[in-house]
Design a protein around this nucleic acid. Structure first.
Lengths: 212, 212
DNA sequence: GATCCTTACGAACGGATGTTCGCGAGAACT
DNA sequence: AGTTCTCGCGAACATCCGTTCGTAAGGATC
């Protein structure tokens, strides 16, 4: 019972490629044609079998109401995250409001939502430089950030230095009336500045290192 | 022209939530009901507008032929990658053949394919321990690996140590007839073993660090 | 006011699509 | 041989669903 017939495998493959191509499921007649099956009822029969075996889910009476279930019967929830730019690149970074961002984002990455712990409005930046190397963040890494206004001492945050007109990723410490932005790199010195010169853009959530 | 009317925003949101819920696009009448619109032609009109603005793509004469386009008008190509287990966890890891892997994988992550440089059969492992800390790979990181049989000196590879029955992530060096597995951690010593005791499972491609 | 554009409404048309039913071939079992 | 189950075929049916057409309200322009 656990085994799939050749026709069922063929249908499953067709489902995957069709959805991968068009982003919506095929109709039964699409499957019929795509798999060279003579009758719609044969397709229906095999779809029922696939549903019995837990590989797909069907909504009755609904056109194209087919859903491929993931490896575990679950569908991974994915989030598209805009890569807004490079950090410490000399340009202010537009913080995405809670609104939908405009389509002017250069690039995006897609990750499962557990990679960002289901947080909302997460955005990403490319890291330039090795100022956070001791926190295991390298040049070229992509960091995921959560928008926030305030920060606690020791948080890794992206801050906009108004006087320099640039954004940088550092650990954040409040010291009296001043702010210390501490790189995680023993060869670099912290930046001291006033509280009203910094604008916190986001707090570090997670990071990704692309292949070299 | 770039602005979206309230109704168009509402439809777009409905599209997203419907697809997120059911995994197939809504019909025009689904949208009509979901957005409390009085006529199907109004839905059609606004869908045309959304298509003109490049936010969706429609297949004419096809039921539910709606596809949400990504931020840049492109659909991101995503890959589902199985997380096969934890590395250095004492268990041999089944290397995925080029066949479809069985549905017994515990967990998966979804990433854009440029995150793995379009490679095939990539799989992932959770890192236990800090033996690669100097290569900026921490405990808890997820590493993406590409199946391979051989390795070059200095490659970061996951190897199965047959005598210990465990898998570990180390840098690989061939030294005479022996193999040196070098941790990237100054407090740890390399493992020396014979070539026939190691079985290379995969080569390091990239890594991801979840939020703490 | 005249004209045009955008947005909206409601109904009807026709094609697309899931479902069902009768029929039959082949295999396994009694 | 008889029975049952699986798998497949073809056609018909009812509904689902995209499309189109006539109409109209509101705003902008001249």
């Amino acid at each position: 019972m656990a085994e799939l017939s050749g026709k069922q495998l063929q249908i499953l493959d067709f489902l995957r490629s069709f959805i991968g191509d068009k982003d919506y499921p095929p109709s039964i007649r699409d499957i019929q044609e795509g798999c060279a099956i003579s009758s719609t009822s044969v397709v229906d029969y095999n779809l029922r079998k696939l549903e019995e075996k837990g590989l797909i889910r069907r909504d009755r009476e609904v056109s194209r109401g087919i859903e491929i279930l993931g490896s575990r019967g679950r569908r991974p929830r994915v989030v598209e995250i805009p890569v807004l730019g490079s950090i410490a690149a000399g340009q202010p970074i537009p913080v995405p409001s809670s609104e939908r961002w405009a389509n002017d984002t250069e690039d995006t990455v897609v990750v499962t939502d557990d990679m960002i712990k289901g947080r909302a409005n997460v955005f990403a930046l490319r890291v330039k430089g090795t100022s956070m190397i001791d926190d295991l963040i390298d040049d070229g890494d992509i960091v995921f950030l959560e928008p926030c206004q305030a920060a606690q001492d020791g948080d890794k945050v992206a801050v906009w230095l108004k006087d320099r007109g640039e954004v940088t990723l550092k650990r954040f410490y409040r010291e009296g009336g001043r702010v210390r932005l501490q790189p995680a790199n023993s060869t670099m010195k912290p930046i001291y500045t006033t509280a009203d010169n910094v604008e916190i853009q986001g707090r570090f959530i997670s990071s990704f290192r692309p292949s070299a």
